[in-house]
């Protein structure tokens, strides 16, 4: 079971959850299950085809997910998926 971590700015789209456990053998699977559970993530976070928008970062165990190959790679059983968003406060 992968654990997905959200920045607080995404919590309005996740029923105020900061983390969520999602099933999936690869990133694509996890994102499919994640957005099925929290469809409001589509639009402000993911495109309709479940790609992170250009101002969103997606990481698996600290490594960036940048390609279709990354998205299809098998996840280990305790994978940590981390989402971050571009912020500009200073």
């Amino acid at each position: 079971m992968a654990v997905v971590h959200f920045p607080r700015q995404f919590m309005p789209y996740t029923d105020q959850h900061k983390t969520h456990e999602a099933e999936g053998l690869c990133v694509n699977d996890v994102l499919g299950n994640l957005t099925a559970r929290f469809p409001a993530l589509i639009g402000p976070v993911f495109s309709e085809d479940l790609h992170p928008l250009p101002f969103v970062g997606l990481f698996v165990n600290g490594m960036p997910v940048m390609s279709a190959q990354d998205r299809g790679r098998a996840l280990d059983s305790n994978a940590q998926l981390i989402l971050i968003n571009a912020v500009a406060g200073g």
Partner: peptide, 25 residues
């Protein structure tokens, strides 16, 4: 390389709009 583009204006908030605890910066 991290964020190719900024978010659109309707998804953007600065400290004046979103608020910030002083210790964070």
């Amino acid at each position: 390389d991290l964020f190719e583009t900024p978010p659109p204006p309707h998804l953007t908030q600065n400290c004046a709009q979103a608020g910030v605890l002083g210790v964070i910066p």
